[in-house]
């Protein structure tokens, strides 16, 4: 009894307790729902069997039906477009901002902090703000494009099927760019100055230094950021709910919104679970890449 007590106070028992609490938390709140979701995607689920765990097993039937739906491939295509465009936009804008603030002009760090405001805002609020900005008849976005002579007629961003997905992408880039900027700023500042000095003495101009020193030294940061971007972008739900609700006619619908729509609007829980499982696989692959790229960090 005494030994158990002393182990709990300052021995291995204490260590196990510290690890056990978050582990239990993770299992209860993430692990169990995850497994429940995977199991559900192989079962026949209806409103009456929703409360029970033991349900008729249907094998791959839910997946087969899901893929057979006419909107499946368009929605997957939208998801891919949303992922690639959001990540590319967030990364490029974030990198440009990080390089800009790296010049360290007076007030740079203060201004950089201000940029984080976009990231801490809830998605629904951002969605509401962008609804006004992108509004077809009185939106600021249209006004600016008009003044720059890029467009001649108003673009109805949220209701035109050709632009509805892009309206969410624009809002999502705005939302995520500052997070990219912060991580890239950290990466940039961890490159020692004397490497640049050595490269400069070796005859490298500014552009050569960027390609041969900055970018390779940032490889692990960039790898981590891209995989984090993939994970965060696949989690982006609020903006869809706030801006387009997946419409019009599924033109801005993506996997994560569709999963919610199937489960909680059409009450087809099995198909909703099936699409979640497909997303879980993608996110898992991204996580593996994330862990690997942070493990291989090169620091001189």
């Amino acid at each position: 009894m005494r030994r158990l007590y002393s182990s709990l106070v300052d021995g291995r028992g204490f260590d196990l307790c510290l690890i056990g609490i978050p582990l239990a938390f993770l299992i209860v709140l993430s692990g169990v729902p995850l497994i429940y979701n995977v199991v559900m995607s192989f079962q026949a689920v209806d409103m009456f069997s929703l409360g029970s765990f033991i349900r008729p097993w249907v094998g791959h039937e839910n997946y087969r039906q899901l893929i057979a739906q006419p909107e499946f491939w368009p929605i997957m295509g939208h998801t891919a477009t949303f992922l690639v465009a959001s990540i590319a936009g967030q990364f490029l804008l974030g990198f440009a901002l990080a390089l800009f603030f790296w010049m360290n002009f007076p007030g740079a760090s203060w201004l950089r902090g201000l940029f984080l405001v976009s990231w801490v805002m809830p998605g629904l609020v951002v969605g509401a703000v962008w609804n006004w900005l992108l509004s077809g008849d009185f939106g600021v976005f249209n006004f600016v494009l008009h003044q720059l002579h890029i467009i001649s007629d108003n673009v109805f961003w949220r209701s035109d099927p050709a632009f509805s997905l892009w309206s969410v992408i624009i809002a999502n880039i705005w939302l995520g760019a500052s997070f990219n900027m912060i991580l890239l700023s950290v990466g940039l500042s961890s490159i020692p100055d004397d490497l640049y000095e050595a490269a400069e003495l070796d005859g490298a101009g500014a552009l050569t230094r960027f390609w041969t020193i900055t970018l390779p030294m940032m490889r692990s940061t960039i790898g981590a950021l891209i995989s984090l971007g993939l994970i965060f972008t696949l989690q982006q739900f609020d903006l869809f709910a706030a801006i387009t609700a997946g419409g019009p006619n599924n033109s801005s619908n993506v996997a994560q919104y569709w999963a919610w729509d199937l489960s909680f609007k059409q009450y087809d829980f099995a198909k909703g679970a099936a699409i979640s499982v497909i997303m879980i696989v993608v996110v898992m692959l991204a996580s593996v890449y994330y862990v690997r790229s942070t493990r291989h960090e090169v620091r001189g």
């Binding site: 020692p192 004397d194 490497l195 000095e197 050595a198 003495l201 070796d202 030294m217 620091r299 001189g300």
Partner: peptide
Amino acid sequence: DVAMVFQSYALYPH
């Protein structure tokens, strides 16, 4: 056209 040897060596780690 001068070459410098730094105290930290400043070798390119990658």
